[in-house]
């Protein structure tokens, strides 16, 4: 028997344990990337086998936040894929301007780099004061970090370049304070952001959104869960509302994809069709 098959059994047991004991369901995550993350987690917790990891978490529930954080490994940067932010700036925001109030949901906000990018876009479009941004994630450790809005100063150069390439008209440093090796985003960017725990796997519609941004989150889900979440997005969006996903994501295997019409294929920006 391949060692990998034994490992597959252990991963199944681990996933089952998280579901039974804590209600966290990873069974519809894409297997290949989940496996890598579970392995890393086992190493981080100094477990020789993944079955040891399962036992450790079952008997030490205080470890759960770190386990969840390890299984979600949020990686992003401000204005990642600048052309996407340019498209949001030029194509989407001018159309949202016609609404008296604008609700935006960023699903899977991780450490918050994108939600602050979005806040900056809205400020520069003069729409921030009548916008409300819901930044959600199921990883409480990441949410707390996102709320702080503190990032490593070594990344500021990249963020600034992305901002300029994404059509930024000022200097990104206008929006943060640099202290030693950190930058802290301006408090005023947070005024219209609500950070909240929401799990795309099991939580339901909570707002009527005009724009949903969920980039590089669905890549971790299998077809079934991807479809489930696209349905959730469809139900959450106003008619004609916008959805922006990661620019290498593929939704062709989801039945709910027919609810969406691509308006920018390169940037993966869609509009919700009338039901």
């Amino acid at each position: 028997m391949f060692r990998s098959s034994i490992e597959d059994i252990e991963i199944e047991l681990f996933v089952h344990a998280l579901k039974r004991r804590f209600g966290h369901d990873f069974s519809n995550y894409a297997p290949a990337s989940l496996k890598r993350r579970v392995r890393l987690l086992a190493r981080q917790f100094k477990c020789d086998h993944i079955s040891d990891l399962a036992s450790k978490v079952l008997h030490n529930p205080q470890l759960l936040p770190d386990v969840i954080a390890g299984l979600s490994v949020p990686v992003s940067e401000m204005f990642r894929d600048p052309p996407v932010f340019r498209a949001l700036r030029d194509e989407v925001l001018p159309r949202l301007a016609s609404y008296p109030e604008i609700n935006i949901w960023q699903a899977g906000c991780a450490f918050g780099q994108e939600v602050y990018s979005l806040a900056i876009l809205l400020k520069e479009a003069g729409l921030y004061e009548r916008s409300h941004i819901y930044a959600t994630d199921f990883n409480d450790v990441a949410l707390a970090r996102a709320q702080e809005g503190i990032f490593a100063a070594r990344d500021a150069k990249l963020y600034s370049r992305n901002y300029q390439e994404g059509g930024g008209t000022r200097s990104l440093s206008d929006y943060y304070h640099a202290r030693y090796e950190f930058i802290k985003m301006d408090e005023s960017l947070k005024e219209r952001i609500t950070f909240a725990n929401h799990n795309l796997v099991c939580d339901s519609v909570f707002c009527e959104a005009h724009l949903i941004i969920c980039r590089n989150v669905l890549i971790y889900f299998n077809d079934e869960l991807q479809d489930h979440v696209l349905k959730l997005f469809s139900d959450s969006l106003v008619r004609g509302g916008y959805l922006c996903i990661g620019n290498r994501e593929n939704i062709q295997f989801s039945a709910s994809a027919t609810d969406f019409m691509a308006i920018d294929r390169q940037s993966r920006i869609y509009r919700r069709m009338p039901h």
Binding site: A30, P31, A32, S33, R36, R37, V73, V75, S76, N216, I219, Y220, G246, R248, E249
Partner: peptide, 16 residues
């Protein structure tokens, strides 16, 4: 993106 093979032989992506 990291490029992975899923067990069913299809491509999977990750930004880990």
């Amino acid at each position: 993106y990291h490029l992975l093979f899923e067990p069913d032989g299809r491509f999977g992506f990750s930004v880990d």
